[in-house]
Structures are given as C-alpha cells and as structure tokens.
C-alpha cells in the first residue's frame, strides 16, 4: 500500500482526511492487513460459500407501528414544508 491507495479509499468512502492522518492510517492499515493476511492459510478448497440467504415472507398488510414522524422531520438539517431539503446535484 502507499499514500495514493489511502487517498483513493478515502475518496470512495467520502472521508476528508488531513495529510498527517493519511500517513498514520497507512502505517496502521499495513500492520492490520498483514495480520489478517493469515486468512490465506485457512484450508477452504472443498468449502462452498453458503450465505444461508432466503426470503422471509409476511402478508402484505399494513400493521400499526409506533414511531414519531415529527421527530424524524425535526432532525432534518434543513427542511421545507415537512420535506427534506438537499443541495442541487445536477
């Protein structure tokens, strides 16, 4: 890894990092990744990944749920007429 890799990952994760932090993160990540690299030694040749994924179904009916819409709206950083207001993206 090098500092460019850290910068690319930070951009993907949308994280603003200082130059100093990038350098210390690089050192930490190299240490941690070289440790978890041990995973290579686990014998898994005859193991099929089994994610145990299946659907959990329920009837399509409206059930009462206790939650506060007001509390959700109150926490929008900016809102207008009860809607969330965001910056222009186009």
């Amino acid at each position: 890894m090098n500092i460019k890799d850290v910068e690319a990952l930070a951009e993907l994760a949308k994280l603003e990092l200082s130059t100093e932090e990038k350098e210390s993160l690089l050192a930490d990540m190299e240490g941690i990744l070289s440790y978890v690299k041990q995973i290579e030694e686990v014998k898994t040749a005859d193991i099929e990944p089994d994610y145990k994924v299946y659907n959990v179904w329920r009837e399509d009916e409206l059930l009462p749920r206790d939650f506060s819409k007001e509390l959700i709206i109150e926490q929008f950083p900016t809102s207008q007429d009860g809607f969330l207001k965001v910056k222009k993206i186009l």
């Binding site: 890799d5 990952l9 930070a10 994760a13 994280l15 990092l17 990540m29 978890v36």
Partner: peptide, 10 residues
Amino acid sequence: RRRILLGAYV
C-alpha cells in the same frame, strides 16, 4: 475512520 477504510479495501 480506520475501519471504514479497511472495509472499503477488503
């Protein structure tokens, strides 16, 4: 922040 980056990496 460290784990977010490590997660993005793996």
